[in-house]
Structures are given as C-alpha cells and as structure tokens.
C-alpha cells in the first residue's frame, strides 16, 4: 500500500527526470566522452593536458579563488541585509523580498553592460570622482578584478540573501528570549544562539552562490581583463578559436568534478549537524 503510493508520487517526478536525461545528462555524457576522444579514437591526451598545461592550472585556480572571494563578499554584504529582513513583519518582509528579486527581471547581459557604462573612463563614476577633485586621471575600474567582483556580487546577492532569510525566519524567537532570561545580553544572545542557528541558511546560500560563480561567463568576460580569464573563458576559447574540443571537454569535466568535490566537502562537514539537514529552508 505504502510502496504503491510512493511509486505514484514518484511518477510526478517523471517529466523532470525525462527533461534532465535529455537536456542535461545526455550532453554531460557527451562532454565526458569528448574528453577521451582524439583525432584517432580513444586518447588521454586532453585529460593529461590538465596537469601539463600551466595555463589550465592557473585558470582553474583563479576560477575557484574568484568564486570564493565573490561568495565571501556576498555573505558579508548579504547577512546583515538578511538579518534586517528576518526581523520585519511578514507583510513588509514579502515586500522587501520582491525588491531583492527585482534585478532578476533584467537580463544579466544588460546589467553587466550597465556596469560598463557606469565604470568606463568616461563613465558616471569617473566623472563624479573627477568633478569632486578626488582624482585627476580617470581611474581604471573596467577590465579589473574589482569590476568582475562588483558585477558578480550584484547578480548573486539575492541568491545568498533569500536562503539566509528563510533560515533566519525559521529560528524560534523563543530561543532568543530563553537566552536573554538565562543571562545573555542581546549581543551575546545573537552570537551564541541566533548566529549559529542562522549558519545553515547562510551556508546554503553561500554554496549555491559558489557553484554558480564557478560557471559564470558573461560578467567576467565583459568586465574582466586578461588577468581575470577564468575557466569558462578558456573553454570558450578552445571551442571557438582553437577548435580543441577534446581539451575543452576535459576542462569542463575538471570543473564538474571540482564542483562535486565541493558539495561532498560541504556534506561531510555538515552531515552531523541536524540544523543543516534541511539546508535551513524548513524545519
């Protein structure tokens, strides 16, 4: 009886599973195979190039570092905002949530181009700085790591904020009261109760942000310079310019494995913490 019901419920997943198979697994396997296929059949050349090519290693490292710093900045900026939102009444919180989501209505491409307009040599920011007399020459914002971070943080911030808020809203307000009556000042109650309990939601947001950052393409390409070439650019280069599809596939595989490794580490680090089991999204 129970098993039968489970099967019926599983049937609801079928469309999603079919979609994943056709649109996701199929190309994924294709990429995996591609990384082992050369001009004359099976080869390990592409894969071994991951080790031998200095470029590949540097770019892979840089990609992870970029994803890491972007995530940290998103968390540092997003956490206080999320805290503010979590303390609002539900109605007002819903309103602010719409505002946080508002940027999603505008394409990433457009938002990135907007940064080019704002940060360019003749852009709004430089004009303002010069007008204020803070600088004589226009500052080089565009095509730097700074611009890449700015663009990515702006895009990813809502993705960090929303799960963090959800996690915080789930924290039972009675626990804070309990901490207070047991002798904790508001600040100590925050650090010893609220903060640890909010970590699961924030970690979920951070993890999603990190993984999305690894695959970012448009923003780093348009806002970054040569020094911020990341793995997506490198793959693109192999596909479109050098036509080395095998190496492109190997790079993609490496990125995938590294991402899975991150998930595994996150899981290992949190599996014994009950509050992480739900990812902070519900309880």
């Amino acid at each position: 009886m129970k098993a039968k019901q489970n099967w019926r419920l599983m049937a609801l997943l079928l469309p999603a599973i079919a979609l994943i198979c056709v649109l996701f697994l199929n190309p994924l396997v294709g990429v995996l195979i591609q990384s082992f296929v050369g001009d004359d059949g099976f080869t390990l050349k592409s894969i071994s190039k991951l080790w031998t090519s200095r470029l590949a290693r540097v770019v892979l490292e840089r990609t992870f570092w970029l994803a890491f710093t972007v995530t940290v900045i998103c968390l540092l900026v997003g956490y206080p905002a999320a805290y503010y939102m979590s303390q609002l009444r539900p109605r007002k919180r819903a309103m602010i949530t719409y505002l946080v989501l508002l940027p999603f209505w505008i394409s990433i491409l457009i938002r990135t181009y907007t940064w080019i307009i704002l940060l360019g040599r003749e852009g709004l920011v430089n004009n303002a700085l010069q007008w204020l007399g803070l600088t004589e020459q226009p500052v080089q914002f565009l095509y730097t790591n700074f611009a890449v971070h700015l663009g990515m943080v702006q895009i990813l911030l809502p993705i960090v904020i929303l799960p963090t808020v959800a996690g915080m809203v789930n924290i039972d307000g009675g626990l804070i009261k309990a901490a207070r009556v047991m002798g904790a000042s508001p600040i100590r109650a925050f650090w010893s109760v609220f903060f640890p309990l909010s970590l699961s939601g924030a970690a979920t947001g951070g993890l999603i942000c990190f993984i999305l950052s690894l695959g970012f393409y448009v923003t780093p390409t348009l806002l970054g310079g040569q020094k911020s070439l990341i793995i997506a650019n490198l793959i693109d280069l192999q596909v479109h310019k050098t036509l080395n599809w095998g190496f492109a596939a190997a790079l993609a595989t490496a990125l995938l494995l590294a991402t899975l490794l991150c998930l595994l580490i996150f899981w290992l680090a949190t599996r014994n913490r009950p509050e992480f089991a739900t990812g902070g999204l519900s309880r």
Partner: peptide
C-alpha cells in the same frame, strides 16, 4: 532592569532548548 540582569530561571512551555 534588562531581562538578563533579573536573574530569573524560566521553563518555557515549548521547551525552547537550543537545537545546536
């Protein structure tokens, strides 16, 4: 006197144990 200085022991109906 703020709550934390009142030196009161309290048992809540909903337990309010710290889950972490």
């Amino acid at each position: 006197t703020p709550t934390e200085k009142r030196n009161i022991g309290m048992v809540f109906q909903s337990y309010s144990l710290f889950p972490h």
